[in-house]
Amino acid sequence: MQKTWRSHVLLAYSLAILAFLYVPLVILAMYSFNDSRINAVWTGFTFRWYEQLFNNRRVLEALINTLIIGFASTVVSTTLGTIAAIALHRYKFKMQSVINGLVYLPILIPEIVMGLSLLVLFSQAHVPLGKGSLILAHITFCLSFVVITVGARLDGMRSDYEQAASDLYATPWQCFRYITLPLIMPGIVAGALIAFTLSIDDFVISFFVAGPNSTTLPLYIYAMVKRGISPEINALSTLMMAVEIILVLLAEFLQPSHKAKADN
């Protein structure tokens, strides 16, 4: 693009918006190292809020819960989602549009509706609220994301690979094991990372279906925020941000960019 005044204005505006997006997060991270309790004045660099965090029993409990729920829901939703994506890719169903609709619905419906509907379900079915109910809920909203992520990878895969494999004496199972699976593995891993991130990140749905002893990190943060400012939250938030950023970058590097489909 030529270096006209127009392009300079565009650049300036874009940088401003990017700054708008990042400055609050950077400030948050900065202040997690601030020695002062009354946030805004900078009194010195310290790690003590992070130390306090690691000694906080409730935080550690919440962390463990978050990780357990994260891993469990990731494993189940990735498995179910991958199988579903393969089924959708391979077969033409009579109710194709209904199935597609059902897959997209959990993403399109506001989270709050999904959360409370699960609460209503559990209460009517007399299922106690706890880690179990959280895992069931998380699997439900992660499922769609996995189906879409793996599905995209499958769509990008040329169909003649599987035909060639079949022509070369591979049974459908062998075709899946030696050809399809290796080729879609990056998509599966990306889907799993997305599911994990969504799970550890989730607040709204967890808010409704968590039990008294099954706090997750986001729920813990919420409770603290409502109670008042404590620099510990800054530290915890910063840590969560760091983890989420790393997970997202990992998932990105495993996804084929849509430009790579040009080799079709």
Binding site: R158, D160, Y161, Q163, A164, A165, S166, D167, L168, Y169, A170, T171, I179, P182, L183
Partner: peptide, 20 residues
């Protein structure tokens, strides 16, 4: 018979070589 049970082999238009 499905393809994997036939003793014929095909050279595909875009080769379909397994990239991995």
């Amino acid at each position: 018979l499905p393809p994997y049970k036939r003793n014929v082999n095909m050279v595909f238009q875009n080769y379909a070589l397994f990239p991995h």
